[in-house]
């Protein structure tokens, strides 16, 4: 297929996935903030969202202080920077518009209508209606798009590049959420010098799991109390959890095998190598390396894969 078409599809998928993951992350942070705790902790959790997306500078240009409503406005409806949910869904729609003929009518209509509905809502309206309801709406629209895609699209290259974009973005996002939340949560726990998971911590870990729709999954898999190590294991090494890194990488490797061309051998090799660390890796080794350092490496490898995919397939000869 046309490289530019593949490029638009890939970015359409990345932006949709990013918007959804942002909604998940913000939702969790917002819900955590509803549990009574000191202002310092709350500020830290909102700060973490900004740091997670490397938006410190962009945020400080627009806001003097970090409060829930200001961060929410900045991350949800601010159209002046490219990382808000609004900007992501706009970019997803623009990319889809550029190749709408490649999408099925159901997919295009879903993306277009999502955009039309979002465009007509001010932040005040969203805030008044309850941000939780808004985040649910974002997740529902993402599910609808995914459903339309799986249910209607020919399994051709267009499909593969959409999946590739979505999986790459998801792997990146899961790694980032885990990195930021793990350290703020596990760190707080240690500083209390208490190895018991108290009710508050339970709530926080539960929220993190919910942000990747893995709360019930955790229960099912471990049938035990929530510990940070197991949460990390679940989100990194499970091959059957759709938002776990292992599962994402498996999909990426499989797709790269399908779309490979004369230039992509090195990309296929690197993806396979990264996949192997998940397929055959152990949590002990990851913790020995240091979870933060390991996740940082992983995020960089995903970035490298993205650049290589772009070079091999999307820019064109």
């Amino acid at each position: 297929m046309l490289s530019r078409t593949a490029d638009h599809l890939y970015w359409m998928a990345r932006y949709s996935e990013r918007a959804e993951n942002l909604a998940r992350l913000l939702d969790v942070t917002y819900q955590m903030s509803l549990v009574p705790h000191d202002p310092e902790t709350e500020r830290n959790s909102w700060n973490a969202i900004i740091a997670l997306n490397s938006l410190e500078l962009a945020y400080s240009k627009r806001h003097d202080e970090v409060t829930a409503s200001q961060v929410l406005h900045f991350m949800v409806r601010d159209e002046t920077h490219p990382s808000s949910i609004y900007s992501c869904l706009r970019a997803a729609r623009e990319n889809a518009h550029a190749v709408r003929g490649t999408l099925t009518a159901e997919m295009w209509e879903t993306i277009n209508e999502t955009w039309l509905q979002l465009r007509d809502q001010s932040f005040d309206e969203i805030y008044a209606g309850g941000v939780a309801a808004f985040f649910d709406w974002v997740k529902q629209r993402a599910s609808l798009l995914r459903g339309a895609m799986f249910g209607t699209m020919l399994r051709d290259e267009a499909f593969q590049f959409i999946r590739l974009g979505a999986l790459l973005e998801r792997a990146d996002n899961t790694a980032r959420i885990l990195d930021v939340k793990y350290h703020s949560l596990a760190g707080a726990q240690q500083s209390q010098g208490d190895d018991l998971v108290d009710a508050n911590d339970f709530y926080h870990w539960g929220a993190l799991l919910r942000s990747v729709s893995a709360f019930e999954v955790y229960r099912k898999v471990y049938r035990d109390v929530i510990t940070p190590e197991r949460v990390a294991e679940l989100l990194i090494l499970r091959e059957d959890l759709p938002r776990a890194l292992h599962s994402c990488m498996e999909g990426i490797v499989r797709i790269l095998e399908k779309v490979r061309n004369s230039r992509s051998d090195e990309t296929v090799r690197r993806a396979g190598q990264l996949f192997a660390t998940l397929r055959y890796g152990r949590m002990d080794d990851i913790f020995a390396r240091g979870l933060h350092a390991w996740l940082e490496d992983f995020i960089n490898s995903i970035g490298d894969l993205g650049a290589r995919i772009s070079e091999d397939f999307l820019v064109g000869a």
Partner: peptide, 16 residues
């Protein structure tokens, strides 16, 4: 998306 090589027109695709 198009380029010319030896007076022939080609499009840039994911397969070359």
């Amino acid at each position: 998306d198009l380029f010319i090589d030896h007076d022939a027109v080609y499009m840039r695709t994911t397969r070359g």
